[in-house]
Design a binder for these strands. Sequence first.
DNA 1: CATTAATCGAGACGGTACGTCAGGTCTTCCA
DNA 2: TGGAAGACCTGACGTACCGTCTCGATTAATG
Lengths: 204, 204, 204, 204
Amino acid sequence: MQSRTPAGRTGRPRSAAADAAILAATRQALVELGWSRLTLGDVATRAGVAKTTLYRRWAGKHELVVDAVAELFDELELPDSGSLSADIEGVVLQFAAILARPEAKSGLMAAVAESTRDDALRERVRTSIVERQKRLVMEGRSRAQSRGELPPEPDPAEAARTADLIFDMVAGAVVHRTLVSGQPADEEWVRSFTRVLLQGLASA
Amino acid sequence: MQSRTPAGRTGRPRSAAADAAILAATRQALVELGWSRLTLGDVATRAGVAKTTLYRRWAGKHELVVDAVAELFDELELPDSGSLSADIEGVVLQFAAILARPEAKSGLMAAVAESTRDDALRERVRTSIVERQKRLVMEGRSRAQSRGELPPEPDPAEAARTADLIFDMVAGAVVHRTLVSGQPADEEWVRSFTRVLLQGLASA
Amino acid sequence: MQSRTPAGRTGRPRSAAADAAILAATRQALVELGWSRLTLGDVATRAGVAKTTLYRRWAGKHELVVDAVAELFDELELPDSGSLSADIEGVVLQFAAILARPEAKSGLMAAVAESTRDDALRERVRTSIVERQKRLVMEGRSRAQSRGELPPEPDPAEAARTADLIFDMVAGAVVHRTLVSGQPADEEWVRSFTRVLLQGLASA
Amino acid sequence: MQSRTPAGRTGRPRSAAADAAILAATRQALVELGWSRLTLGDVATRAGVAKTTLYRRWAGKHELVVDAVAELFDELELPDSGSLSADIEGVVLQFAAILARPEAKSGLMAAVAESTRDDALRERVRTSIVERQKRLVMEGRSRAQSRGELPPEPDPAEAARTADLIFDMVAGAVVHRTLVSGQPADEEWVRSFTRVLLQGLASA
DNA sequence: CATTAATCGAGACGGTACGTCAGGTCTTCCA
DNA sequence: TGGAAGACCTGACGTACCGTCTCGATTAATG
């Protein structure tokens, strides 16, 4: 997001409704067209807004799509199911459900692809999506620790590194399963994945 | 790849050298420009080839890039280091090294993004890259089983499912670490990752 | 010509300067390259205009060239030299001078060639060039009639037919002499032509 | 093309047949497509000939079309109708009939257009078509002179100039009427034209 | 309540790349 | 050894989308 009348206070203020309409139109266009066929002119038309209005708020296609997709992940919630493995299975299933939606799939990967060349975009992806959802790992781990399922972390730096690792393993596995292997991350798969994650390969 | 004079035997045959030149030029352009700024006209020029020659062999940018990138992964080899964890660390480091190369990064993710909408492209990604490298998992597991580090698989279907799971976990984690989190998959990270993969989260 | 914001009054209006620049660039390109080597991309570049601007106003090469060439003929004027034969000689010489210019020659014939297959184009040629210059025949005849050099026309329909015939004979002869026979329509030729036209073959 | 020549020994047994087939295919393509949409590849296909064969015999599209069209005019004949005006009317009607055929129209004018920039092509048009048909003027005039309808020419140079003038006037008028004005050169028009040509404008 | 200044929809603009097509040239194999 | 088949390079085509720029017309907040 990047509206809010910048500094000066005079003049007509930006329409708040336009932001929402544009993001919704972007998601709709992602569903119907996918990333590569989505055009900003079309998004503007769908949102009932002029292209100018769109460009006044977002720098380009990638930024807009990241914002439109990021909102989808905010509905993720860590269920309190009483055990670590059930917690993980629950959140992974939610994550998989979001990734299965067409408006998330292609937009997200395209943004990641472009972010390999565009530092500002990578930062935007990180702060809008990755860091924001890392909360789930932190919370799940602290619950598991208070339940005694996981040992406490003595070193905070080490704790952060481990959280990053877990996030990369969880998110990476689901994304790869869904988008690259093209298989559904269904309950059976999620159970197998969680078992390996918690108990290691030897358990498989 | 898709050259080789298809069926008829008449007429001038397709230049074998052109294929190689085009794929090399594609990788070079990926390094210099990244996916989004790469144009087929520019690739053709770099390869010393007419645009029409390029279009005669590949249907579009995505197909071309998948083929150009797929070749990179063929250099992966499973080291025989004597232990499963060392084998995994070795191959993951190799995989990370390839993914760190600019010609692999953005091209691969862009193809994955597009493949969410294009079944033929997803199939191409799967057969050219995913299935082809799954050999590493199969071979590593069978070695570990003969060493007694992993139990034998009684059910072949289950064995295949597990191989898929492992591949998704390994490839997914490295890709996510490298491209989404934007952090290097260095030796330290690979050691931590391998430990969790083999022994589970509780060991972390 | 076909600019002027059509009906709606919103949006940025079309640049009036662009029209003039494009037509001038077209004539310049005709001089330097001739019809067959003239490209719309080159014309756009010369005019300092994007190709899309050009295509927004003209449907294609033929239409553009007809408009560019038509302007040349607007400078034709019927001299009032006191006698019908002198009037004819004067205007035919002017016509020949225009046709001798390289920007008129090849463009005009190419448009005529294409117009044999394209009714809209033929209509454009007729209204932009032929009908517009037929005024010279009408005016010249009426002057000659008031001088008593030609009998008055009793029937208006017959008068129109005769005007058409005269125009075809004059324009056709000059065009054929200049472009097909490849000889200059100089003063001597114009005198001979005018004598035959006025007095018939027997006088030659 | 499938000519006999059993034990192909000498030069080019198919050559003659190929020439005719190519020219016929060219005319057929002109009828169906017109000049601008006619392609040499298509002509070769229609003629059952390889593009190579075609280019071995003609330098390009213009040359080929000139030759294909020139043949059409060879069927022109000067009728011996007993009077100059009837002779003229007869041959002009024949000429108009040829020009009305679609394979003549656009091909001829396109060649003329290009010949304004290409001296070799102009020469080819002149020798293949213009000079070849000028025979009709010479013969018609000499007949009229022997009938006493036209005075004899004392000066041969002047005679040649006059023949050129007449040819330009006749051919030019018919071409202009047919192609530019887009009106048929029918019997009525031909009568009017012939009267003006023979007796001058004042007679109209 | 008038002024002011930034907003809005609309759409033309300069660019750049697209994917296609035709013109001619060349290579290969066959008869 | 000529010819068909067809790949090749070149260069223009007409289109699409990008992101910018004018327009005239709205809107609040300010004065």
